[in-house]
């Protein structure tokens, strides 16, 4: 638990990372009316997709630096020497990543929906789909960060490997956001659960190799 608090404290950089998430969301959401025209009918129709695309970008935006600084300044070494297993390092960073990237997004769902002209009624559905599906995105982003730790052009590499892996949560998430009571929400929950098992496991091997 102390590890989770530490990771949130360090990775949020005194709240600046959280503010970055908020600014990114509001700015990026306000670009869509310029991109597709200020037609609220069209905008509200694509709102689920907008929410989920923003979620994918947020995941990568914060995913890039999830291990880098701690690896470079020796914190990761100290954490290992304190006896924290690779799996728990992964898990605490998944939690921290989620808090930094997606807690603000879920809080700001209503704001984005107002920008897109979607009703408050649909905002609840959007929020629910994000709440259930974004843990999967955090898992995949942190796993990709562990795999690309120390790589050349790691941010580009991370995008190349992580976006294809995020397609299933994207599909289920958009469906769950668009349509209540479909099987999508269950599938979305299932992909989050599967990711929560796979990511620490695969990350264990990835970090082990990175710390050689």
């Amino acid at each position: 638990m102390s590890l989770v608090w530490r990771d949130i404290a360090v990775l949020s950089q005194g709240g600046r990372a959280l503010a970055l998430s908020c600014f990114f969301l509001v700015l990026a959401a306000s670009l869509f009316p310029f991109a597709v025209g200020p037609d609220t009918k069209l905008l509200s129709a694509i709102a689920p997709g907008v929410h989920w695309l923003l979620a994918l970008f947020l995941a990568v935006l914060h995913g890039e630096r999830i291990f880098v600084e701690d690896e470079q300044d020796g914190s990761l070494e100290q954490l290992r020497a304190l006896g924290f297993a690779e799996g728990s390092l992964m898990f605490s960073r998944i939690v921290a990543h989620w808090v930094i990237a997606f807690a603000p997004q879920i809080a700001l769902t209503v704001v984005v929906d107002i920008f897109l002209g979607a009703g408050l009624a649909s905002a609840g559905q959007h929020m629910l789909s994000l709440l259930i599906g974004t843990p999967a995105l955090s898992c995949l982003a942190v796993l990709a960060a562990a795999l690309t730790l120390g790589a050349r052009q790691s941010s580009l590499l991370m995008i190349v490997i992580v976006f294809p892996l995020m397609i299933p949560p994207l599909i289920f998430g958009v469906s769950a956001a668009a349509d209540s009571g479909s099987a999508a929400l269950m599938l979305l929950g299932a992909s989050s659960l599967i990711s929560l098992v796979i990511a620490p496991l695969a990350g264990h091997f990835a970090l082990k190799a990175a710390l050689k």
Partner: peptide
């Protein structure tokens, strides 16, 4: 891309192998 991103061959091999395994599970889901 993973194979080509590391100067250390062992590290690249390891990362690429994990990615391939995660990818094949993902492929089924995809």
């Amino acid at each position: 891309a993973m194979w080509n991103a590391f100067s250390d061959r062992a590290r690249a091999a390891n990362a690429a192998a994990i990615l391939a395994l995660v990818g094949v599970g993902n492929l089924v889901i995809i």
